[in-house]
Amino acid sequence: MLLILLGVLILHLLILILLIVSTAVSAWSVTGGSTTDLWYSCLTNNGGYHCRPASNEDWIQAVQALMILAVLFCFFSLVAFLYQLFKLVKGGRFFFTAIFQILASLFVMCAAIIYTVMSPDDADKAFGYAYVLAWVAFPLSLISGLIYIVLRKKE
């Protein structure tokens, strides 16, 4: 049982790290010498690196909000898991943890879909690794949430 709990905890920490990195790193889309993330658009110019704030469009603000909510709900589910691990009665299930984790996965999915649909189409644009990390965090957090639903507290 201890190995299962340790494995679930490591998976949860991995998901939290993936969400934080994908929210903070400047690599959601890459175009030639420029990178764009949720917060800044940066351009490499003659050895310098010049950044300007992201646009004020509603869709990018929705993606920002959803990614922040995903990080917060993933953190809240970790806190709920640790609390329930010590306070939950024997045989109880980790429902609050599961609900928070599934909500975090839904927020990540919605943010990535909005970014995919609404980001401007350029001929030489490619999605960066932070965008890929967000898509990797989605199924992992959904699977983690489903594991918490099944998981029961034992002695």
Rank of each mutant, 00 (worst) to 15 (best):
G33A: 11
G33C: 11
G33V: 10
S34A: 13
S34N: 10
T36A: 08
D37T: 12
W39S: 08
S41L: 06
S41G: 09
L43Q: 15
L43A: 11
N45T: 14
N45G: 04
N46A: 14
N46D: 14
R52K: 13
P53Q: 10
P53H: 04
P53R: 07
P53A: 11
A54F: 10
A54C: 03
S55I: 10
S55L: 11
S55R: 06
N56G: 14
D58E: 12
D58H: 12
W59V: 07
I60C: 05
Q61K: 14
A62K: 13
A70W: 06
V71I: 04
L72Q: 06
F73E: 03
C74D: 15
C74R: 08
F75R: 08
F75L: 15
F75V: 15
F76C: 12
F76Y: 11
S77C: 03
S77V: 03
L78T: 14
L78N: 10
A80I: 12
A80C: 11
F81K: 01
L85F: 15
L85P: 03
L85W: 08
K87S: 12
L88E: 09
V89C: 09
V89I: 12
V89E: 15
G91M: 12
F95L: 11
T97A: 10
A98M: 07
F100S: 04
F100Y: 01
Q101I: 07
I102D: 00
L103F: 12
A104T: 02
S105K: 00
S105A: 09
L106G: 00
M109P: 00
C110K: 05
I113W: 03
I114E: 01
I114M: 02
Y115G: 04
T116C: 04
V117P: 00
M118N: 08
S119Q: 05
S119H: 07
P120R: 04
D121S: 14
D121I: 13
D122C: 06
D124V: 07
K125R: 15
A126G: 01
A126K: 11
Y131T: 08
Y131P: 00
V132W: 06
L133R: 03
A134K: 08
A134C: 11
W135P: 00
W135C: 04
W135I: 07
W135M: 04
A137F: 05
A137R: 01
F138M: 13
P139D: 05
L140P: 01
L140Y: 05
L140I: 10
L140H: 09
S141T: 07
S141Q: 03
Y148H: 07
Y148V: 02
I149F: 14
I149M: 10
V150W: 15
L151I: 09
R152S: 10
